[in-house]
Nucleic acid binder design. Sequence first.
RNA 1: CGGAGUGUAGCGCAGUCUGGUAGCGCACCUGGUUUGGGACCAGGGGGUCGAAGGUUCGAGUCCUUUCACUCCGACCA
Length: 419
Amino acid sequence: MRFSRMLIPTTKETPNDAVLTSHILLLRAGFIQSIGSGLYNFLPLGKITLDKVRQIVKEELDKAGCNEVHLPIVTPITLWEETGRADKFGKELLRFKDRHENNFVLSPTNEEAMVNLVRQTVKSYKQLPLNVYQINWKFRDEVRPRFGLMRGREFLMKDAYSFHATTEDMEREFALMEETYKKIFTRLGLAFRVVEADSGAIGGAGSKEFMVLADSGEDTIMVCDACDFGANVEVLSEDEKVCPKCGGGLSQTKGIEAGHIFQLGTVYSEPMKAEFLDEDQKLKPFVMGTYGIGVSRLLAGIIEQNHDENGCVWTKESAPFLVDIIVAKAKNEEQMAAAEKLYAELQSKGVDVLLDDRADKKTGFGVKIKDFELIGIPYAVVIGNDVSEGKVEFITRDGLQKESLSTENLVEQILEKLA
RNA sequence: CGGAGUGUAGCGCAGUCUGGUAGCGCACCUGGUUUGGGACCAGGGGGUCGAAGGUUCGAGUCCUUUCACUCCGACCA
């Protein structure tokens, strides 16, 4: 993409209503725009980044054998009445009527809708196990939305639901999802911890949260210094000093809940009469698991964990572009030609590259380099005066290290550095 | 939902106490000069001052009501 053709409204000034670093930076760098309490427009950079994160989540789930589907965001409240959650969810559930005076809700989560989908189509143990998911917008009418994408009212969430004939098989899937989540968070370049969690209103036998480690996190967790044990303070009393798993020392830290996996059992399938015929010819309720990832929240989490005083520092797999080609003087024909050549070559190699070709007189080198730092693209190639001597500058965003590269075999040198 | 604030140009703010022609910075447009770290000079466009009602000769400013947004807390798959 060419910078000159993209809508990237970066700003020098900090918006007055943002407090959290990720919120400030995502606004200033032109990724998102506030439209109401807890509601955000995703601008081109934000949309690209969101899609990248979404794609990683999808790829890993598909590898693990999950089926992607798409459910309506609007669901009849009658589904929610089947499990009693129409009452239990309270005001967080946004309700409204259609023109025929029928009651609907904006889905905050989709257990009922997904159980309904499966009970209509799965009748035999031979069709199990089954893991069905969607990556779709959710709406929760939060009492107090805050912190930008961290706690919005409308947010993108991956929600998966697995269906099994036995508890043992559900536990196998639960373990598989834990491993799959670890792959996703690792690919995204995040420092995270899997912790024992409270199953809360959702019920079920056990649950684990995936915590992105960040001081600004809303959750307090206890982690073992010796092994990989961790727990939310909700389930492990704050005064515990010894790891229940290995006896090591426990320390307290903050985390952002970005994923949560639950062993559900039959708490939804029983009231909704979602049953299959087992090999002993008996009707049994599905044994279920449910697995969530806050996709839009991950964007905030990535920035909370990866930024400096100059702006965002996206990880390689989440970045909207991998390389920013900065033309120091876009009116200089030699520089522009060299930049265009590199742009075409990198594109042909499949690299996501942004060409900062802005040539208006107000957008000098300083503006371009500041935008590069604020947006947080992992690498920049500066094509400036030295190009006439066969040299360009290569910048790594994380740490802002600079080095000079020869224009000979430039693409190969760059590809090597990107690897 | 309790507590505390804020609404004035796209963004950040002053002006409100003490009523008298709507301001500043950034951004934007035009021309010129600049050109490797968010340039400079000159000119210019953009506002029913969140909304409604009231007081007044006159309201951004005073009064009443209302809406929105933010922060702290409680809440939270």
